Lab assay of single mutants.
Amino acid sequence: MDTYKLILNGKTLKGETTTEAVDAATAEKVFKHAANEHGVHGHWTYDPETKTFTVTE
């Protein structure tokens, strides 16, 4: 398992979190669910070198 990071750049919610996942696709599902639960919808990017997802509203 690897550690993946999410950076939230929402209009009303900003922050960072991490998750352990077997691959980037699994981490993305976890992060998108969490972002949706917090009402953050926007443009997603992924940097494979740093294993970091970013969502920007």
Rank of each mutant, 00 (worst) to 15 (best):
T12G: 10
G10D: 03
D47A: 06
A25D: 10
N36I: 14
T3Q: 08
T18G: 04
F53K: 00
D47I: 05
T54Q: 06
V55P: 01
G10V: 08
A35L: 12
P48A: 13
N36Y: 14
K14Y: 14
A21S: 06
T52S: 04
E57D: 07
N9D: 12
F31L: 06
I7W: 04
H43M: 12
V30A: 11
E20W: 13
T54V: 08
N9A: 07
Y46E: 00
A35I: 08
T26N: 08
D2Q: 14
T19L: 13
E37H: 11
L8N: 02
Y4C: 02
L13H: 15
H41C: 11
D23G: 03
W44I: 03
G10S: 07
G15C: 15
G39Q: 06
L13R: 04
V22K: 14
T54A: 04
T26S: 13
A24L: 10
T18K: 08
H43V: 14
T50D: 04
G10N: 04
D47R: 03
T45V: 09
K32I: 11
V30N: 07
N9R: 09
K32F: 08
Y46W: 04
A34Q: 13
T26E: 14
T56P: 01
K29I: 13
T17F: 15
T56K: 05
L6Q: 01
A21K: 01
K5Q: 05
T50N: 09
Y4E: 01
K29N: 09
E28Q: 09
A25L: 10
H41K: 10
T52H: 03
H38T: 08
D2G: 09
G15R: 12
F31D: 00
G39P: 03
K32A: 07
G15N: 09
T19R: 04
K32D: 03
E28T: 03
A24N: 04
G10L: 15
K51N: 05
T18W: 14
D23W: 03
K14L: 08
T50G: 05
G39N: 10
Y4W: 04
N9F: 08
Y4K: 01
V40G: 02
V55R: 00
E28C: 11
T18Y: 15
K14G: 05
A24D: 04
Y46H: 01
E28I: 07
D2C: 12
P48C: 06
T19M: 11
A24Q: 09
K14T: 12
K14P: 04
E49D: 14
A34M: 15
D23K: 02
T19G: 03
G39H: 06
K5A: 04
V40K: 03
T17W: 15
E37A: 13
A35V: 10
T18C: 10
N36C: 10
E49N: 11
K29L: 12
T18Q: 10
V22S: 11
V40W: 07
A27V: 02
V40T: 03
E20I: 13
F53G: 01
T19V: 14
E49T: 13
A25F: 10
T50L: 08
T50A: 06
E49Q: 11
H33I: 14
H41S: 11
T26V: 07
D47H: 07
L6Y: 02
K11A: 14
G10Y: 07
F31T: 00
E16A: 07
H38K: 13
G39E: 05
A21M: 02
T26I: 07
K29Y: 09
N36R: 13
D23Q: 03
K11V: 15
E20N: 11
T12A: 10
A35T: 06
N9H: 10
Y4S: 01
A25E: 13
L13A: 08
D2T: 14
K5W: 08
D47P: 00
A34E: 10
A25C: 11
V22T: 12
D47C: 10
H33W: 10
Y4Q: 01
A35Y: 05
H41T: 11
L8D: 02
G15V: 15
T26A: 15
L13I: 14
T45Y: 09
M1A: 08
H43F: 14
T18D: 05
P48W: 07
V22D: 07
V22N: 10
T50Y: 06
M1C: 10
H41Q: 12
A25N: 09
H38F: 15
G42D: 02
G42M: 03
L13S: 09
E16I: 07
A34G: 04
A35G: 03
A27F: 00
P48D: 09
A24Y: 13
G42C: 02
N36G: 10
H38N: 10
A35K: 01
A35C: 09
K32Q: 11
E57Q: 07
V55G: 00
N9Y: 09
H38W: 14
G15T: 14
D23P: 00
D23C: 05
Y4D: 02
T18L: 09
T50F: 06
V22L: 12
K29C: 08
V55D: 00
D47K: 04
D2A: 13
T50W: 05
N36T: 11
G42T: 02
G15L: 15
E16W: 10
T26D: 10
T17M: 15
M1T: 11
D2M: 12
K29S: 10
I7C: 06
H33A: 14
P48Q: 08
K14S: 11
T26H: 13
I7S: 03
K32C: 07
D47V: 05
A21R: 02
T3A: 05
K51V: 02
A21N: 03
V30H: 11
I7N: 04
N9S: 08
T56S: 08
K29F: 09
D23N: 09
A25Y: 10
H33G: 09
A27S: 02
T52G: 01
V40E: 03
K5E: 03
E28R: 06
T45S: 13
K5G: 03
K11C: 14
K32Y: 08
H38M: 15
A24I: 08
T12Y: 15
E49R: 09
A35D: 01
L6F: 07
N9T: 07
L8F: 12
N9C: 13
T3Y: 06
K11Y: 12
T54N: 04
K11D: 10
